[in-house]
Amino acid sequence: MTTVKICGLKDSEMVKSILHLPIDYIGLMFAKSKRQVTPAQASDMIRVIKDYREAGNSAPLTVGVLVNPTREELTAIIAEAPIDILQLHGQETPEECRWIRETFPGVKLWKVVSVSQANQGDAAGSSESARQSIAAVLNPYIGIVDALLLDTFDPVYGGGSGKTFSWETIPPYREWCRHAGIPLLVAGGLQPDNVGELLGAYAPDGVDVSSGVETDGVKDRNKIISFVERVKHHV
Rank of each mutant, 00 (worst) to 15 (best):
T2P: 15
V4A: 14
C7G: 07
L9A: 15
K10I: 03
D11I: 03
D11N: 14
K16H: 12
S17R: 12
S17T: 06
L19I: 05
L21V: 00
P22V: 00
L28K: 08
M29C: 06
F30V: 02
K32L: 00
K32S: 09
S33M: 04
K34P: 05
Q36N: 04
T38K: 03
A40V: 02
A40E: 14
D44F: 05
I46L: 12
R47Q: 12
E54N: 10
G56R: 10
N57F: 05
N57L: 03
S58H: 09
L61M: 14
V63D: 01
L66W: 05
R71V: 07
R71C: 05
L74K: 01
L74V: 05
T75F: 09
A76M: 03
A76S: 09
I77S: 08
I78T: 07
A81V: 03
A81Q: 01
I85M: 10
L86V: 11
Q87Y: 11
H89D: 08
G90K: 01
P94H: 06
P94D: 05
C97N: 12
R98I: 02
W99T: 03
I100C: 06
E102G: 14
T103P: 09
L109I: 13
V113Y: 05
V113G: 02
S114M: 04
V115S: 10
S116D: 11
G121K: 13
S127E: 15
S129F: 09
A130K: 08
Q132I: 01
Q132S: 08
S133N: 13
A135Q: 02
V137H: 04
Y141Q: 09
I142Y: 04
I144Q: 02
V145L: 10
V145G: 08
D146S: 10
D146L: 04
D146R: 02
D146Y: 14
L150Y: 08
D151W: 06
Y157W: 06
G159Q: 01
G159M: 01
G160L: 04
G160M: 07
G160W: 14
G162V: 02
G162N: 10
F165C: 13
S166P: 13
P171C: 13
R174G: 15
W176C: 04
R178Q: 05
H179G: 06
G181W: 13
I182H: 12
L184T: 05
L185W: 15
A187N: 02
G188R: 06
G188K: 05
G188H: 07
V195M: 09
L198P: 07
G200P: 10
Y202L: 04
A203P: 00
A203K: 13
A203N: 13
A203Q: 15
P204R: 01
P204S: 05
S210D: 11
E214T: 00
T215I: 06
D220S: 14
R221G: 07
N222H: 13
I224Y: 09
V228W: 11
R230Y: 06
V231L: 08
V231A: 07
V231Q: 13
H233D: 04
